[in-house]
Design a binder for these strands. Structure first.
Lengths: 345, 345
DNA sequence: TTGAAAGCGCTAACAG
DNA sequence: CTGTTAGCGCTTTCAA
């Protein structure tokens, strides 16, 4: 009985030819059946299907892709899977890509431009059909690294001035919403944690923060804008500690991601400052943990599933339309909401 | 100049043959150079290297693998990337596999036996060279789904009685250490959250918990053992709420993972119960967030990097030694430590 | 030391 | 409707 093993005890994989021989037809007919081609003589179809079953035939995807000139894989390039936001996004991209029979090759760049560049370069045209990139430090010309025939969609970051599809939320607007929420709470000394010299989303969120303050007639105080070179919990704690040491500490803080905010919560507690009474805190990303922090965190909640699906759709569009060249780059804005929790109640 | 584009503007990828023609040698010679074969006439080598450079040649990995009969990919089968433990593990496995030029195909099972089974079945022998599986609900015979020629290593879970390589920490011992820590704190009413009808690690952790109580001469009280069908934060909160409603609530809780513990911390706070004063809490996994929860969480910290590396090493061993068949299954125990933080101080 | 050629498993003209 | 056959790009005998 099939599948069987050879002399060495290794499993013997049935090929199209094996199936054809067993069914007494040509490989073409078997291929037709396997690929759901309609016009196959019923009798042959039956015999082929039987042979398929007894051999336990499984197509060799590698060979098929070689022949078809595609790889069946997408690359997902992101800083680090251990960062909750990217872990959650990756899971959703996996699901979305799976619906179209794509495998996803995940590459971690650890957020350094060097690794982002070399990853793009290593993504040979033979490895992947397209790439979804969540850049952190990339410059425009770094995209030369990538084979021009490969469709790319960028997630989140959009400052890089390069004609590439992009999907993400309106960061400026979201930051305005977050900051305005603090204003409406009656807070007047509102700080921001997460300014960054060249990260595009940071710039946009800072713009939104500034816009909200200006709209409310509040002064922009430079000492309330704290830079964060990394966006980990520790950085948030450090920044918050700094803010609380100011002569006139803020009564509210808008953090550019949830990890910074979680760190800020801890620093506040360690300084004996009560959240939200003394200082209200808003985050950004809506990580799952933010609903369970103490206090739970008010945060901007991007529709991550929508981001994942839009990214995959953009890719499909480019792959289906000729080579995807000469198609104007699209910029998809996905929805977000403000999730109000204890840190601002 | 290469790489160039054809009439349609599509990039033209140089093949071995192109390079050979340009260098005026045979494909064999080019192949030799590309693969670092030593004995190539210096003059030819130079010409080939020049041609390689001007064409921007990149080997077609798919074709190479087809010919070599390998795929260059590992499967990593886990419940969900959005769960911090698995996000962190996945990142480490990616790194470890990358050191040996393996791509990693991540498959999410969402922890259901059905999806775990179908995932194993779909992992055709042509897609991957081996699989790293972190099972949650798998039964022994589900492994029949997988092609017998494919080496598998199981992570964490080891109850499934099947002759397969395994790597993980000693769950019984770790649970004993965690529980004994609570005993040493002077706690006498120690509860456990996370019992599960068929999850192997749950059984082992429960065993360790029982052993520690018995060793300390403490009674086993069945009302202190709370089942959790899922291991999310919500389940921990529910379980803790239940425990606190008992006539005689516990003065310590050992949670079978950090998410349960995080949920437990929140429920305690909501019930006005102070941690660790009224009830001490220990978790398991050492998720990054546990160092920043309020209070920070004492937890069992498995050496995750060691797990990832051991898993990849076990696979390499099986792939290098013949087909890996007839090699006794190995059980690698990786180190762990008890990370003591505020929740037990 | 290198060339010629076979063939990994599959798809897709092209005949018939 | 189906068989034959030519490759996809690469590695690898086998000879030379």
């Amino acid at each position: 009985m099939f599948p069987t093993t050879d002399a060495d005890g290794r499993p013997l994989l049935a090929t199209l030819k094996d199936v054809a021989r067993l069914a007494g037809v040509s490989v073409k007919t078997v291929s037709n059946v396997v690929n759901g081609y309609e016009f196959v003589k019923p009798d042959n179809r039956r015999r082929v299907e039987e042979a398929l079953a007894t051999t336990g035939y499984r197509p060799n995807i590698g060979a098929r892709n070689l022949r078809r000139g595609r790889t069946g894989s997408l690359a997902l390039v992101l800083p680090e899977l251990s960062i909750p936001y990217f872990g959650e996004m990756a899971g959703l991209v996996l699901e979305a890509a799976g619906e179209h029979e794509w495998n996803v090759l995940i590459e971690q760049t650890l957020g350094t431009r060097d690794r982002e560049r070399s990853t793009l370069a290593a993504l040979g045209p033979h490895m992947i059909d397209a790439a979804i990139v969540s850049p952190e430090a990339l410059h425009a010309r770094d995209f030369d690294q990538l084979d021009p025939g490969i469709p790319v969609v960028m997630l989140g970051e959009h400052s890089v001035d390069v004609p590439i599809d992009h999907v993400g939320i309106d960061n400026v607007l979201a930051a305005t919403v977050a900051t305005s929420h603090l204003v409406e709470l009656g807070r007047r000394r509102i700080a921001a944690i997460g300014a960054h010299p060249y990260r595009g989303t940071a710039t946009q969120r800072l713009d939104g923060y500034r816009a909200a303050l200006t709209a409310a007639g509040l002064p922009l105080r430079h000492e309330y804008i704290v830079q964060a070179l990394n966006y980990h919990r520790r950085d948030g704690a450090d920044a918050m500690a700094h803010l609380l040491s100011l002569p006139e500490p803020p009564d509210a803080v808008f953090c550019f991601n949830d990890l910074l905010a979680i760190g800020a919560l801890r620093a506040a507690a360690e300084h004996g400052v009560s959240v939200p009474r003394d200082v209200a805190v808003v985050g950004f990303d809506n990580n799952e943990e933010s609903a369970y922090s103490m206090p739970s965190l008010t945060t901007i909640a991007p529709d991550k599933a929508a981001i994942a699906h839009s990214a995959v759709d953009l890719i499909r569009r480019r792959i289906n339309i000729n080579g995807g060249q000469n198609l104007a780059p699209e910029d998809v804005q996905t929805p977000f909401s403000l999730e109000i929790r204890e840190s601002t109640r």
